[in-house]
Nucleic acid binder design. Sequence first.
DNA 1: GCATTTCAATTGTCTTACAATTAAATGTTT
DNA 2: AAACATTTAATTGTAAGACAATTGAAATGC
Lengths: 247, 247
Amino acid sequence: MDTNLKAKGELSTQIATAIRDSIISGALPVDERLPSEAELCEKFRVSRPTVREALKRLAAQNLIRTLRGATGGAFVNRLSFEEAYRQQITTSTLLLSMNEVSFETACEARYALERACVALSAERRDADHLATMRAEIHRQSQPGLSDERFCDSDVAFHRALVDGAGNPVLSYQLAGAVEAMQPLMNMITFTARDRAQIIKMHTTIADAIEARDPAVADASLVDLSAYTIQLAHDVSASRRNKPEASV
Amino acid sequence: MDTNLKAKGELSTQIATAIRDSIISGALPVDERLPSEAELCEKFRVSRPTVREALKRLAAQNLIRTLRGATGGAFVNRLSFEEAYRQQITTSTLLLSMNEVSFETACEARYALERACVALSAERRDADHLATMRAEIHRQSQPGLSDERFCDSDVAFHRALVDGAGNPVLSYQLAGAVEAMQPLMNMITFTARDRAQIIKMHTTIADAIEARDPAVADASLVDLSAYTIQLAHDVSASRRNKPEASV
DNA sequence: GCATTTCAATTGTCTTACAATTAAATGTTT
DNA sequence: AAACATTTAATTGTAAGACAATTGAAATGC
């Protein structure tokens, strides 16, 4: 670990950066224990609160975990795909909510990325992925299902579709796109008729995946994309006509 | 801001979570000033170092920025696409380096995602994107270019290709995939012959984008993907044959 | 040999104090 | 009166020391 800090910005920031660099460069391998806070104070010649603020920054990025007790301390975290998923979902969600991204733009991105997976998924999906997709379709067909549950199931369906590609990097990238869309999707209250349409398209996709037919799977995903955007248009149009009802 | 903390985990974590929830829910809008540290101490009934650790966590996620001075304080940050790019790149880089993702897997993901953009890019690219692509191809053709600069230019080329789709969400998603690959790409030392091949493929792609021909652009991207993976195979094979030279 | 207790190391939190920074208020000079 | 310099107040940044909480390991007792 390099204890020579660049003379720029606040101390806690500099220390956090120095440790982060050591982690990224591999100088501090996964599960390695960092020096205790007291030792870090000596190394960097700063007080303990300053060191702690630096460590909290790293903890917020899941780069380290801290344990109390005799054998406690700060340890380098392995950034798991699970944690990366979560981070990406929250980042994507904030990005969409803070930058007034239109539904069309987000939707286009989502389906474009998802189309990148279907060909691979049609080739490689195993029985589990297919079973999950069928199960979610069945869940979506149940009459009493709330809108929220329907959307959850929708996400699960597409997640299985993406995971079928068997590429964890792809799954990680898609997680943000798909899940961050959910709040926007929830704004569209599906009617029973809409649900029937969507379930039909899901079934077509599942059939194509089962038949290992990438072309049909891709085509039906394009249909679903167009239909979703059309739905959004209809909703926003009806809201413009009846603005008083759009509370 | 909800000052009722759930009795779980550490105080600084709870406070950070409470404030973060307020930001995500929109209760604290962008550029809103948070209460001063002293006020937060009173609200949450904790000491100032604890409040500060919580604020540092949020600062590490770019959720807030802090300014010193009379009118200083912590302000809610607008999460810009730029910052989201950077976060995603570091996350993706760590993910790839810590989880022993194979070059094939990462490469497959990257090109699959990129293929999702070319069709849109062929439709929508403007003169600037095309000019950037041409300029980078020209740069790549220069004889004395170092391997590192060549890779930089490669990234810039693909970045322009992706940006041509005119969808910031897509650009954001791709940034991580493309840039995180660079360290892996750097492991492959391109020979002059390899460079000529790659430049040829880049030219084919640029021509197709200029002609607004999605099918040809997609096909040449597939070629480039296959060639890159082949190169990686060759490199790893030659390393297996001469392990003593792979220091 | 096993269970219990004690202990020591470490992080979590609190208190108090002071330094650094910044903008506004105030005073001073032209 | 206006421009400039100074002071002041608010706020974050850093420091030092203390104590509490936690936890594994060592010492102790049976």
